[in-house]
Amino acid sequence: MAITSSWRAYSDSKAMRASAIKRGTPRGIGERLIEFSLTGCGLLSVLTTLGILSVLVIETIPFFRQVSLAEFLGDSQWTPLFAEKHFGIWPLLVGTLMTMLVAICVALPLGLFAAIYLSEFAKPRTRQIVKPALEVLAGIPTIVYGYFALVVVTPMLQKIVPGLAGFNALSPGIVMGIMIVPMISSISEDALHAVPNGLREGAYALGAGRNATIFRVVLPAARGGISVAVLLAIARAIGETMIVAIAAGQQPRLTFDPRVPVETMTAYIVQVSMGDTPHGTLGYQSIFAVGAALFVVTFVINALGHRMARHAVSS
């Protein structure tokens, strides 16, 4: 048979191969080169972090040579572009916190209830359609939300809320909240999903109704994951830029009134960048100082969130 003869050839060629397992060719060098460059790719992310830190530090140091930390944290006015300069971060910080609070007040109930719906009520098919649809909200560029806040939401709110200015903290906050809904809902839903079914069945077996089961058993068991969602959402809202730059105004003022124009930290960076502020001036350095403050705030909140997430997983 033809096959048999080819088998013979097989065996012959095998016999002719000398010690074939020893390293001979420099093939290993190519492999190592590839591993080396892939390691480089991995380390690039560490370099990015170092880059962010050093850029912020390098430009912030000269800023604090001219502006004392006491003024930065103590003054209640922020007027770096005026003749009489004040560098108190509070107006920007309060503007940031206020828009963030409005956003969370919108996003938390919507996101949490949406998560409950998806995890506890929705049929798998509904879920399959609704989840990606919600994700679309997070994929829309923020500039589009900014337009929406300025052109649609503010005029609508002006009919309801007396004394609402054309630029305000309320409208961009609400729009930002809508944008953040999928972030809260998807992390919370994962947390609700992770609650073992045995707990639900245990509650039902005791005669608990659906609401009691959700509120007394499921939500408490998932509270770790939900807190993570809220923390990450807070960090996202604090760092959000275009919506507030467009619709909140650019007037740094220390106020807790959501109806009047304010300026956030991010919006200030954009405002200065849009103008012509030469390198080396105090104005130029001030955006890095504000950026550093923004970085610290978001980093702390994010790190807290990630830490809690690890904790929630391990427990």
Binding site: G51, V55, L56, I238, T241, S273, L294, H306
Partner: peptide, 20 residues
């Protein structure tokens, strides 16, 4: 590090680009 980078506000990447 990557998890943390994902949470850095985009405007700060702008500052990185400007400085670097």
């Amino acid at each position: 590090n990557i998890a943390n980078l994902a949470g850095v506000p985009s405007v700060i990447y702008g500052l990185l680009g400007l400085g670097l």
